[in-house]
Design a protein around this nucleic acid. Sequence first.
DNA 1: GAAAATTATTTTAAGCTTAAAATAATATGA
DNA 2: TCATATTATTTTAAGCTTAAAATAATTTTC
Lengths: 183, 183
Amino acid sequence: MAASAPETLTIVDAETVHVDAPAGHKAEIRLWLRLLTCTMTIETSIRRKLRERFDVTLPRFDLMAQLEKAPDGMTLGELSKRMMVSNGNLTGLVERLAAAKLVDSRASETDRRAQIVRLTAEGRAEFAAMAVEHESWVAEMMRGLSPGEVETLMRLLAKLKRSAHIALSADEKPAEGKNGAAS
Amino acid sequence: MAASAPETLTIVDAETVHVDAPAGHKAEIRLWLRLLTCTMTIETSIRRKLRERFDVTLPRFDLMAQLEKAPDGMTLGELSKRMMVSNGNLTGLVERLAAAKLVDSRASETDRRAQIVRLTAEGRAEFAAMAVEHESWVAEMMRGLSPGEVETLMRLLAKLKRSAHIALSADEKPAEGKNGAAS
DNA sequence: GAAAATTATTTTAAGCTTAAAATAATATGA
DNA sequence: TCATATTATTTTAAGCTTAAAATAATTTTC
């Protein structure tokens, strides 16, 4: 069951076996590094442009982008899940954006534990301006891909995402035992 | 020439046009978000496991991984370029790893500005142990992809990387003028 | 062989990020 | 109802990260 044990025995030739670690997953490691490189390259460029053009940080833009999709606001927990960052991180981020009058954060009427965060009118306008350029920057960086290639990447990355989530859930519940062995 | 102007007019049907921003690059934005999600999912998992199993942070692991490929050491500038992080970032990272006796940093003999960083014997041993498990974690998360799919992703991400670099260099030199208009 | 330009790194100030512990409000169950 | 568990967030401590300014060494140019 341990992830470190080579359970799936892929047949490899002798060369590959003795050069690599037990199971020889070099292709996967190279793919992971390439994925990281692509993401970092694009992200670094976007970060720089957001600062130059709008004097805003990427995390702030990302937070505003989430809120823009939720006119009725969103709790911190929801934001945390969607942005894939820690809860504590958001507390500070929201505080700073609230200080800049771009978002508004207030306790929920029905559950006083929850904070509901919304874009202010100013935040919405500011985001709209940024989003237009942001979209064109991304498109420009992907200009070398054909529509078909974009489509293929979408499909394969969706598959990778599913695959990663399966691995995730597999090691987050090392022992189950209670509700039967199903699913 | 501006990245924000819709230069490449892709023919789209009326529905799509009026819903989207000027040039309608929704597919590209969605691909970018998916790329980000995949990377963050895998990275978060690796970060957690490195901490649990080896009590080490991801940036430290990444730095050691770079040094492992350079037995004769590497300058900070070289590390900065390869890891795609800022120069100042590395100063602190190397200091902390040096304090832990995992790397060794000393001024170059031939250029006293440059610091040359190397893994210590202890660092090399520590990294070797981590690398084995790291490789299997990554492979596990990619288990749902066939070898052919891994190959296709490699190829298309390489293309995306090139495309992004072209866009990068296009706006890093807004005016050239000196060495002729060639290339 | 100096002045000027370049290169490599460090410092600084601010902000981002995480994991873990603490706080506070709600839900659950005897 | 009251104790217990759960949920949502904040706080804390440490470390990561960046951009920009400062420092220091080397190279270029006259």
